[in-house]
Every structure is written in C-alpha cells, then in structure tokens.
C-alpha cells in the first residue's frame, strides 16, 4: 500500500468556510459502484457551467492551479455527508493534502483512509498561505510529513501537528483491516463476554 511521505506541489486557495461534501462531489455523481472516475466531477457546480463547460474563473480551471496538489480552504471543510466519494474525487484530481483551520470529523477520517493528509492550522497562518497560494509566483509549497513541515516558496517553514498514530499509519500505508484482524481472538472473546443484546438479525428480517 502507498502511504504519504512528502509532496512538492502547487497549492490552490479556496477561501470559503463550510465547503460541504455535496459541494466537493454533488449527490448526482454518487451513483457509481467504483472509487474511480470522480476526479472530473470534483467541485462540479463551481467548476462547470450549465453546459458542462469549464468556468474560466474557478481556481482549479486556471494555470498553474489546474495541477494543484494542495488545497487551502476555510473552516469546517468537508462538512455534511459522510460520502468518501469526496476525498476520492479530490485524490483523483491530484489533491493529496488539504490545509484548513478545521475539518468535519468524518471527512477528516476519510482522508487518512485514503492516505491524504489533512492539516489543521490557525486561521492567521491560513490567511498567509491563502494569499501565497493565490499568487503564481509563490504558490509552490512542499509538505514533509516526517518533519511535519510546510516549506513556503520563500524558504520559510511552517510546522504542523498531527497525532503520532495517524502519522505512522500514513507513513507506513498501514492496511487497517489486516492490523485489526490480528485481534480476532480478542473480538471473539469480547463477543462471548458481551452483556449487550445479541447482535443477531434474522435473515428474514423484513418478513413479519
């Protein structure tokens, strides 16, 4: 499995709060049974007009942000629906790292499951990064997970925090299902001892 270690990429500014997962990937694009094919649907209502043509003003339709690998956004990014299609779409577009003052919980978790790095920073730092990202001359940034740093185009460094276990999981690209199944005996033991109502749902659940 591939994890996340470091990237050097164009950062795109999206200075909006409460960018919800419907906005990231509209519900009409959820009717897929695959994880792929969503990159072109990312931010569709902001990115395309009614005819499906690119809106020239939207940041990700402009050079050099067309090739953005980092997204800098406002607070509560990824709120709303639990759809993992949102991080899948971002990832397929090429965004590997999102920097925001805060994230909605489910989206935040979903990022790690897809080896994407969500970074939380103070609003004041975000403001600076937003303005640098908006300028083609300064929009290149490098993110290094081992040292937990963002290198700006002027060479200065911004540190970020990340929980150690999340960092390890990202760096090692850990397959969580395999690691959890190592505790199979404990899971079975828990089930034997559980005092909660038996979790057996009859196969004929709907027939009554």
């Amino acid at each position: 499995m591939v994890g996340f270690e470091r990237i050097k990429a164009v950062a795109a500014p999206l200075a909006q709060a409460n960018v919800d997962t419907d906005k990231i990937l509209a519900a009409e694009h959820l009717k897929t049974i695959s994880r792929t094919g969503l990159g072109s649907k990312l931010f569709s209502t902001m990115r395309y007009d009614a005819k499906g043509e690119e809106k020239p003003d939207f940041i990700l339709n402009r050079s050099p942000w067309r090739k953005a690998g980092i997204l800098i956004a406002g607070e509560n990014f990824g709120c709303g629906s639990s759809r993992e299609h949102a991080p899948w779409a971002l990832s397929e577009f090429g965004i590997a790292c999102i920097i925001a003052p805060s994230f909605a919980d489910i989206f935040y978790n979903n990022c790690f499951k897809n080896f994407m790095l969500p970074i939380t920073l103070d609003q004041s730092v975000i403001e600076i990064l937003l303005s640098e990202a908006g300028n083609p001359a300064t929009c290149q940034m490098a993110i290094d997970l081992p040292t937990q740093t963002i290198s700006r185009s002027n060479g200065t460094i911004v540190h970020f925090d990340i929980e150690p276990d999340r960092k390890t999981a990202l760096l090692n690209g850990i397959d969580e299902i395999s690691s959890s199944l190592q505790f199979k005996a404990d899971i079975l033991e828990w089930e034997r001892e559980a005092k909660v109502i038996s979790p057996t749902i009859p196969a004929d659940i709907a027939i009554r």
Binding site: S82, E84, P87, I106, N109, N110, K113, E176, S180
Partner: peptide, 8 residues
C-alpha cells in the same frame, strides 16, 4: 462512517 470504515 466512510466507505473504508464500512469495509473495516
């Protein structure tokens, strides 16, 4: 939960 968690 997300889909990866559902798989888990």
């Amino acid at each position: 939960i997300g889909t990866s968690e559902a798989e888990h």
